[in-house]
Design a protein around this nucleic acid. Structure first.
Lengths: 335, 335
DNA sequence: GTGAAAGCGCTAACAT
DNA sequence: ATGTTAGCGCTTTCAC
């Protein structure tokens, strides 16, 4: 900046004014400064800018998801980035891997860079440590899961009711042995989906066979293994509810030709769901919608919105494609 | 920091030393400082730290991909993030949408934050503007595509040869009308894959029918439309090479039951490729490997490696699953 | 309209 | 082992 000032024959203050588009610089001098900037390839140091600037904004937000490689979260991330880009903000991305230690490390690193705000998919356990950062002015919005022990905005999906209607859908088609594949039980979405599963069964006076319930499925491979075990039972279930996109894909792999006989409904839509045979019935969420909403909420907070914390619950759609409409024993019998 | 110093009854310099783990502070005073830090919830301002610190590192890198929502790039991003996390670095992520203007905007914004380095999937056109930033000390590594008019490290895949063998594979199975679905021709990978396609045909003395070549396919939907048009030709092609994961998925949708008759090989592997019927033969890349390699290269540059720019070419695998082994007319006739 | 001086939060270089 | 001073690149404030 000093170099530019010297080259343009003005003080560094004038350069600062030109760089920031401030009023109060003659056309002629402004042009000379612009010229010098171009020649020297000068670019303002945003770190120093934000250090002194009275607006405490750094124009950067942090996005913390479970795993950015998961298409659900990467779609969400894209939506967040698009919102941020519109207002010339940047996005730091971190994956927690559902590890509370990594979550805290990354949050700390983000906050050390003085991000204006955080969009977080909270890991199991307490998010109370976020309160410290919030007290310091960092805005926080949760997405996909609510924060534990913290009053913040959240953008969620009604996992429980969605799952309940999906499972009821299977029950109505004559299934009474419906297996459940779910993520770690300490994860909120898994809890909610499991609760919905139980509720649908309970409404019919049913309870799941213990062998039909598989918690803690963390990957496609584990889901496939779980399904193989289910199929190997002496009296296997006739339907499966799978708790997310990864599990559904694993289940498909393990089902193989049995896919025509065992009904399947998965949480999350995924590419090719309509191309496999039978096509997969899913509870479809809108990951980009989640991301866009979370970003909009966060930016309104950053821009000064101090209204009480709100929770946005987004709709899901049960997309009937075939796999969820395979009839169960009680219907098959009557047919 | 001043507050901490006051609370601990020491000078701010001592606090700085404690925060940075410097030697030369008595146990007793260090403990008092730690205590004050905890009580006040103090956290070092990294912006100010990096502004003054002699190491010009900000502990942040930028990752610029075509679209973070594309599973190929999100897997790559995850690998980059993991490498960065290991050395406590952070990753800014941006999607270019293959728009040169957005590319320049995001690069400028990254550099204004003084990132240590950039991992870039270059957009079509010139990357000469990166030279300015590199002269200023920002390290750059290209991934997936090389930079135009710039001598930098790159991590690539041999698109041309891979495609050539994939298309030869189809030729050997008796196809001579092999359609080509490709991305915009100004994108390097598309150029290379098309060149490989032409080379394989030329080796047999063949040239593609103009109607069989579809450039500029930018989405799943466009790929599906292109395939529908191909199938509607009076004399449709008997095989299709599709130029990336999105197109392959689109092609599958459009093929429908014709999938059993028309051979298909796609560039990029994707989940469920083995589950659709027939399972899809693909040229598989290793996106996480690309990302990990690019990150390793970048960090070695950041750490001072000044050896000449190098290009790493990673291997692909032709994964035979069925769709690429559907026989063509000349073999079918002889069978 | 312009520039000089002070200071953001921190660290380097030198005191002591 | 600790504190003092200066200054990173920028913006604020207040003179002119």
């Amino acid at each position: 900046m000093k170099d530019v000032a010297r080259a343009a024959g003005v003080s560094h203050m004038t350069v600062s004014r030109v760089v920031n588009g401030d009023t109060g610089v003659t056309q002629e001098r402004a042009a000379r400064v612009e010229q010098a900037i171009k020649e020297l390839g000068y670019q303002r140091n945003d770190l120093a800018h934000h250090l002194r600037s009275k607006r405490p904004s750094t124009g950067t937000i942090g996005l913390l998801v479970d795993d950015i490689a998961n298409p659900f979260y990467s779609a969400l991330a894209r939506a967040v980035e698009d919102e941020a880009h519109q207002r010339d903000d940047l996005v730091l991305v971190g994956s927690t891997n559902d590890d509370p230690r990594r979550e805290q490390e990354v949050v700390a690193a983000f906050c050390a860079r003085r991000v204006d705000g955080l969009i977080v998919v909270p890991v199991a356990g307490s998010q109370r440590f976020l309160a410290t950062q919030m007290a310091l002015g960092t805005k926080v919005v949760c997405v996909d899961r609510p924060a534990d022990g913290l009053e913040v905005d959240a953008v969620l999906v009604d996992n429980r009711t969605s799952t309940e209607s999906a499972v009821r859908h299977l029950l109505e088609r004559g299934h009474c042995r419906i297996a459940y594949l779910g993520d770690r039980q300490d994860i909120w979405t898994a809890q909610e989906r499991y609760a919905g599963y139980l509720a649908a069964l309970a409404a019919r006076g049913l309870r799941p066979a213990p062998a039909d319930v598989r918690h803690g499925v963390r990957s496609t491979a584990q889901a496939a293994a779980a399904v193989r075990e289910l199929l190997a039972l002496p009296d296997p279930p006739t339907a499966i509810f799978s708790g997310n996109n990864l599990m559904t894909i694993g289940a498909l792999g393990a089902l193989g030709d049995d896919g025509a006989k065992v009904a399947l409904i998965g949480f999350d839509d995924f590419p090719l769901a309509e191309r496999v045979s039978p096509a997969v019935t899913v509870v479809a969420q809108d990951p980009m919608g989640l991301g866009a909403n979370a970003a909009a909420l966060l930016f309104s907070r950053i821009d000064g919105d101090r209204s009480p914390a709100q929770t946005v619950v987004m709709r899901t759609r049960l997309v009937l494609r075939g796999s969820g409409e395979i009839p169960g024993p009680s219907l098959a019998r009557s047919a």
